[in-house]
């Protein structure tokens, strides 16, 4: 009796449709308390049915996927193709650290089979409360549908010391890792693995798509690297420190920032220092994300003769990047190459 109890408890926990073995075990009763046991099983059966009705969607046509940011969404689309229903929370032009926790997101998360997020504290200001309110066991952390894309990525700038006097730092490293195509491949594999587990029937489809995407990146990467190779070691100035992975991959130096510390607004004194350093290093390109102050960048550009280049980490953030991840990288590489070229 006890053993059966534990067993069925387990089954209930994992929400598996095991109604049949549960009822068939009824015949193996040992005489005493038979009537009682009948009652217990009836109740359990009822619970099972309830669990089934609530948890297992009837003939699911498409995987219901929510992605936090448009870059993750773009890769999810590459992998999922038309077999997924996809919703993106952050808009390509907004700061991914500060997305409003709209109640409508709760509804989408409640129905989601998978939540694809960047992890590494990128969304920590707004996502956790939404997950709490969504009451969806499929997407809570540790669930199969919770796809934490930073797993396996070699994180850069992991702080030696957690000290907020250094600005808004991230304990797990710089979370803007997806502008490195090598990391995009890792993310695609994560997503393909998650989709295959959630929707085994289409597993081959997802894996093939991820492979096709990786292959495309493998073909493009040398091309991109060749385009930026002439500018190896050159200084590019950024507003916010979110380009370290890109710099690393393409041999650029993005070490000067208009912000004195991450998340701390530029002060005139700091900008004067940046201008002096830019002149010293001969840096004449400033990159600015759509949500950052272009005006500040232009002020600095005027005193240094630099060019301001609009960049984005998200497909759709800048005109011409709407097509997806590869068009985004095409844009970034071409825009930077053009600006660096102009300089020479």
């Amino acid at each position: 009796m006890r053993a059966e109890n534990i067993e069925s408890q387990h089954r209930l926990d994992s929400f598996l449709p095991l109604t049949v073995p549960l009822f068939s075990s009824r015949g193996e009763g040992r005489g005493a308390g038979k009537v009682d046991r009948f009652k217990v099983f009836d109740l359990r059966g009822l619970l099972m049915v309830t669990a089934l009705v609530t948890f297992v969607p009837v003939t699911q046509a498409k995987l219901n996927v929510v992605a936090t940011t448009p870059d993750l969404a773009a890769i999810a689309r590459e992998v999922g193709g038309d077999k997924i229903e996809l919703m993106t929370m952050a808009r390509p032009t907004e700061d991914p650290h500060f997305v409003d926790a709209r109640p409508s997101f709760i509804v989408r998360l409640n129905k989601a089979d998978a939540l694809i997020h960047g992890g590494a504290e990128l969304e920590s200001g707004w996502l956790p409360k939404l997950i709490e309110q969504a009451r969806n066991a499929r997407i809570i952390s540790a669930a199969q549908g919770n796809v934490n894309c930073c797993e396996g990525v070699q994180m850069l700038e992991v702080p030696e010391q957690l000290d907020r006097s250094k600005g808004d730092i991230h304990a797990l490293g710089n979370p803007h890792y997806l502008v490195d195509p090598e990391n995009a491949k890792i993310v695609a594999h994560h997503i393909a693995d998650a989709f295959s587990q959630l929707d085994a029937a289409n597993g081959g489809f997802y894996q093939a798509n991820a492979k096709r995407f990786s292959d495309a990146l493998n073909r493009k990467l040398p091309e991109w690297q060749a385009k930026l190779a002439p500018f190896k070691g050159q200084q590019v100035v950024a507003y916010h420190n979110s380009w370290v992975y890109f710099a690393e991959r393409f041999g650029l130096k993005i070490e000067l920032f208009l912000e004195p510390k991450p998340g701390i607004p530029p002060s005139p004194a700091h900008l004067a220092g940046v201008i002096a350093k830019m002149k010293e290093a001969g840096a004449r390109v400033i990159i600015v994300d759509p949500y950052l102050s272009r005006r500040t960048a232009e002020t600095v550009a005027r005193s240094t003769g630099a060019t301001v280049v609009e960049v984005t980490q998200f497909p759709g953030g800048v005109k011409g990047t709407e097509g997806g991840y590869i068009p985004l990288l095409d844009y970034l590489v071409n825009a930077l190459a053009a600006a660096l070229e102009k300089k020479n």
Partner: peptide
């Protein structure tokens, strides 16, 4: 009711 700029920086 809340309006937020489509290119909000830090909200």
């Amino acid at each position: 009711w809340k309006w937020k700029s489509p290119s909000a920086h830090a909200g």
